Amino acid sequence: MTALVAAPMSAGGADANAPTDDLTQVELVWIEKRTEHWIRFGRDVGEQILDRRRRIVFFAPGAVFALVRWASNDYGTIFSRLDIVRAVRSGEAFQTHPTVMPGGAILLRANGWPDVERVLQIIDAVEAVGIDPVDAAPDHWRHVHNRLAAGETPRAYTLARHRAFGMRREIGV
Rank of each mutant, 00 (worst) to 15 (best):
R52W: 14
R54F: 10
R54W: 07
R55C: 08
R55Y: 05
I56Y: 08
I56R: 12
F58I: 03
F58M: 05
F59Q: 07
P61N: 06
G62I: 05
G62F: 04
A63M: 06
A63L: 05
V64W: 05
V64F: 10
F65C: 04
F65N: 02
A66S: 06
L67T: 01
V68S: 10
R69M: 14
W70Y: 13
W70T: 12
A71G: 05
A71C: 12
A71H: 10
S72D: 08
S72Q: 15
N73I: 05
G76R: 00
G76Q: 06
G76M: 08
I78A: 11
F79V: 02
F79W: 12
S80D: 13
R81F: 05
L82Q: 11
L82H: 09
I84F: 08
I84H: 03
I84M: 04
V85Y: 01
R86A: 01
R89L: 11
S90K: 14
E92H: 12
E92F: 11
E92T: 10
F94V: 06
F94A: 10
Q95H: 14
Q95A: 14
Q95K: 14
H97S: 12
P98K: 13
P98F: 14
T99L: 14
V100T: 02
V100Q: 00
M101S: 15
M101Y: 12
M101D: 15
P102K: 06
G103V: 02
G103W: 06
G104A: 01
G104T: 03
A105C: 14
A105V: 15
I106A: 01
L107F: 07
L107I: 07
L108P: 04
L108G: 10
L108C: 10
L108F: 08
L108H: 13
A110P: 09
A110V: 00
A110E: 02
A110N: 08
N111R: 15
N111G: 13
P114N: 01
P114L: 01
D115T: 12
D115A: 15
V116C: 04
E117H: 12
E117V: 03
E117L: 05
R118T: 01
V119W: 00
V119C: 07
L120K: 00
L120T: 03
Q121V: 01
Q121N: 13
I122M: 04
I123W: 00
D124K: 04
D124S: 03
D124E: 12
A125E: 03
E127Y: 04
E127M: 11
A128M: 10
V129C: 07
V129D: 02
V129E: 04
V129N: 07
G130H: 11
G130P: 09
I131L: 11
I131P: 11
D132T: 05
D132P: 08
P133W: 02
P133F: 04
P133C: 02
V134P: 08
D135M: 15
D135Y: 11
D135Q: 13
A137Y: 01
D139K: 11
H140R: 04
H140P: 07
W141D: 06
H143Q: 14
